[in-house]
Amino acid sequence: MLLKRFMSSLMRVGLIVGVWLSVVDVSSAELKTEEIFPRIEAVSFASASLKKRKRAVVVLPEAWRSIKPADRRVLVILHGRGRHERSLVDDEAIRRQLLDSGLFVILPDGDDGWYINSPVRKQDVYETYLEEVLSKVAIKYDLPENGKQWAIAGWSMGGFGCVNFAERHPDRFAAVSPIIGLLDFPRNGLPEGQSYKVPVERFGTEEAEWAAFNPLTGAAQLKGMSVLIITADQAFDRTMNEHFRDRLTALELPHEYVELKGGHTFPVVRAAIPLVLAFTQRVLTRN
């Protein structure tokens, strides 16, 4: 019964075994688009999963219509807590880097949802919503179904979200790049200054159930993906990232680990974006 419900849920948003399906529920026909910068569009739609209108930003490569659909390379970037889908493109330096990357960049609006289906707030199904928005954007811009042409990244809450989502959709992405991500979370017991208060209104109060959401738990699902971990020497997430790095090492999963100077701050995100873009280009071009 649970499996049947799971498959039914995936069919509603158009995702089965890593393939985005062009079914009625994920049709892009009702999407509204607005150009906010040259080659950068905001798309909005009525989310069936969240029961409210949602937005995403899409950065398009130069002369993107001339790129064959099978050759289109896609990077999804999930924003941090307190940020939104425009946070990166509103930064002039980052906007130029995204425009010059040659990638289709999708920036969903994740609210404060941690990109999970909350066990507490049953209406907050942000994992299902993320499946939905990627399905709709993929249809709208005729993006490839092949997971080898997709990568996912994110910072802070979005760093947690991109790894968690990649683990739960292991055939969907070729590369994952968390930036100052909370990668050993939710949990208690980390060193002072190296922890983050668990939002129990989102994850619940039962610590025994938190492990299901902790990226350490599903790390083995990243087998076959290229992984770039970026943290900072003064960031409160550094220990979490070290734990995740050590977990991948124990599993004998190849990965790259970078420690920048700074804290858990947007300037570190700004410094990390060029590294993520270069890493993503390298992996997807190779594929």
Score class of each variant (00 low, 15 high):
residue 17 V to K: 09
residue 167 E to M: 12
residue 251 L to W: 10
residue 6 F to T: 13
residue 276 V to M: 10
residue 173 F to A: 04
residue 69 P to K: 03
residue 150 W to D: 09
residue 184 D to E: 08
residue 89 V to E: 05
residue 196 Y to Q: 10
residue 197 K to Y: 00
residue 12 R to E: 12
residue 277 L to R: 04
residue 210 W to Q: 02
residue 146 N to T: 05
residue 49 S to V: 11
residue 207 E to A: 11
residue 144 P to A: 08
residue 232 A to I: 00
residue 145 E to T: 14
residue 113 G to E: 14
residue 137 V to K: 15
residue 214 N to T: 12
residue 251 L to E: 15
residue 61 P to F: 01
residue 267 P to A: 04
residue 229 I to P: 03
residue 51 K to D: 15
residue 31 L to I: 09
residue 121 R to L: 15
residue 216 L to T: 05
residue 152 I to G: 06
residue 242 E to P: 03
residue 166 A to T: 08
residue 182 L to N: 14
residue 206 E to F: 14
residue 86 R to T: 13
residue 109 D to R: 08
residue 151 A to G: 11
residue 103 L to W: 03
residue 202 R to W: 04
residue 193 G to Y: 01
residue 241 N to P: 14
residue 175 A to S: 13
residue 218 G to T: 03
residue 120 V to T: 08
residue 112 D to S: 12
residue 74 V to M: 06
residue 218 G to H: 04
residue 75 L to T: 07
residue 164 N to M: 10
residue 259 E to Q: 06
residue 240 M to F: 03
residue 171 D to G: 09
residue 187 R to E: 15
residue 70 A to V: 14
residue 232 A to C: 01
residue 192 E to H: 04
residue 127 E to R: 09
residue 45 F to D: 07
residue 86 R to K: 10
residue 267 P to R: 02
residue 239 T to A: 09
residue 267 P to S: 07
residue 119 P to R: 02
residue 88 L to Q: 00
residue 159 G to F: 00
residue 241 N to V: 03
residue 89 V to G: 06
residue 136 K to G: 00
residue 35 E to D: 12
residue 215 P to I: 01
